[in-house]
Amino acid sequence: MDIRDLEALSWDLRQQTLDIIMAGGGGHIGGDMSLMNALLVLYENHLNITPATVNDPERDRFVLSKGHSMEAYYAVLCHKGFLDLRDVTERFSQFGSPYIGHPNNKLPGIEMNSGSLGHGLPVCVGMALAGKRSGKRYRVYTVMGDGELAEGSVWEGAMAAGHYGLDNLCAVVDRNRLQISGTTEEVMGHEPLAERFAAFGWNVLDVNGDSIAELDRAFAKAKETGGKPTVILSNTTKGYGSPLMENKAGWHHHLPSREEYEQIKADFAKGKEAARNGK
């Protein structure tokens, strides 16, 4: 899909994500919004996964390591036809529902359960190794949060991916620089992050993750990199799309009030209008 259409579409999916959160009584809205562009670009332009190929051994693999951004993932999975948006919205977080606040691999299109941080990268190393050793051409993707990088298992996975030269693996760090207790650099600093990944043997792409065009180019570039895994440091804005929640740690997990909802909805509509006009 071309970039301008993707940009317009991203605002619809933000609105759907918001509606899912409202119906479910709360969600990880800040990270949903910073992650949305990466998810959308991946599913629209790079992954070969469709509802018809969920069991195809040659399908690309995607693991949402920052599992709490599930509401944005629901919106994308519904958009791609894996799940029904109305059903998800009505039952998210409700008693007995399969639509929980983290990935549930009993649902079509979801490969692995997550929720606890630091699990996705090692799992993806295994998936990428399986592909290499079997001579398959599929690629493996994961998205981690930046707060998540404090988990030691992330670096165990990073070490193994470098050691085995897994160029079929691409990790995204949703670098929104905020976590529950404050900024990532106050809580537990990650800089110099690019150098850290490079030292573990990774190809590092540092991009503006609020830009769909930049993300799209980065995913394309990752595919052309041989001999080493790629990490895309996706510099984003937590709560992206409405000044009401942008860069506010308090919006990590939140249920907007009715007034807040209306304001955010209006901001998303403005965003879509601007995207349509190519701004």
Partner: peptide, 22 residues
């Protein structure tokens, strides 16, 4: 697959391999 002295990675990688049919 040699994972080195990293048990979290060991089991995570095993799960990834298994998820791909191993």
């Amino acid at each position: 697959v040699e994972v080195g002295i990293a048990e979290q990675n060991l089991v995570g990688i095993a799960a990834g391999l298994a998820a791909c049919g191993k």
